[in-house]
Simulated assay, not measured.
Amino acid sequence: MVKAMTIREAYLQASSFLRERGVTDDASCAELLLQHLLGWDRTGLLLRWAEPFPAELAARWERLLARKAAGEPLQYITGRQEFYGLPFRVTGDVLIPRPETELLVEAIVAHGRRLWPDGAPLLADVGTGSGAIAVSAAVLCPRWRVVASDLSAAALEVARGNAEANGVAPRIDWLRGDLLAPHIERGLRIDILVSNPPYIPSGDIAGLQTEVRDFEPHTALDGGADGLDLYRRMIGQLRSLPAVPRLVGFEVGQGQAADVADMLRAAGHWDEVGVVDDLAGIGRHVVAVRPAAGPAASQ
Rank of each mutant, 00 (worst) to 15 (best):
K3M: 05
K3V: 00
K3Y: 01
A4R: 14
R8D: 06
R8S: 09
R19I: 00
G22M: 11
V23C: 09
D25G: 01
L34D: 06
L37W: 12
W40F: 11
R42T: 09
R42P: 05
G44C: 06
L46N: 10
A50P: 09
P52K: 08
P54G: 11
E56A: 14
L57T: 03
A59R: 15
A59Y: 02
E62H: 11
R63Y: 00
R63K: 14
P73H: 10
Q75I: 01
Y76E: 02
E82L: 01
E82I: 01
E82V: 03
R89H: 13
V90A: 06
T91Q: 04
D93N: 11
P97Y: 07
P99V: 11
T101S: 08
E102T: 09
L103H: 02
E106N: 08
E106I: 04
R114P: 00
L115S: 04
P117H: 08
G119Q: 07
G119K: 05
G119I: 01
A120C: 11
A120D: 12
L122Q: 04
L123T: 06
G131P: 08
I133M: 03
A134C: 03
S136F: 02
A137D: 00
C141M: 12
A148G: 02
S149T: 14
G161M: 07
N162L: 04
H183C: 05
E185C: 01
L188R: 15
R189Q: 14
D191C: 04
D191P: 05
L193K: 08
N196E: 04
S202T: 15
R213F: 09
F215E: 05
L221G: 12
L221T: 03
D226T: 12
G227F: 10
R232L: 11
R233I: 12
R233M: 03
I235C: 11
G236Q: 04
G236L: 09
G236Y: 01
V244W: 14
G249I: 10
G249E: 06
F250N: 05
E251C: 10
V252K: 12
D259H: 13
V260G: 11
L264R: 13
A267F: 15
G268V: 09
G268Q: 12
D271N: 07
V273E: 08
D277K: 14
I282W: 09
G283T: 02
R284L: 11
H285I: 03
G294S: 14
A297N: 05
S298C: 13
S298T: 10
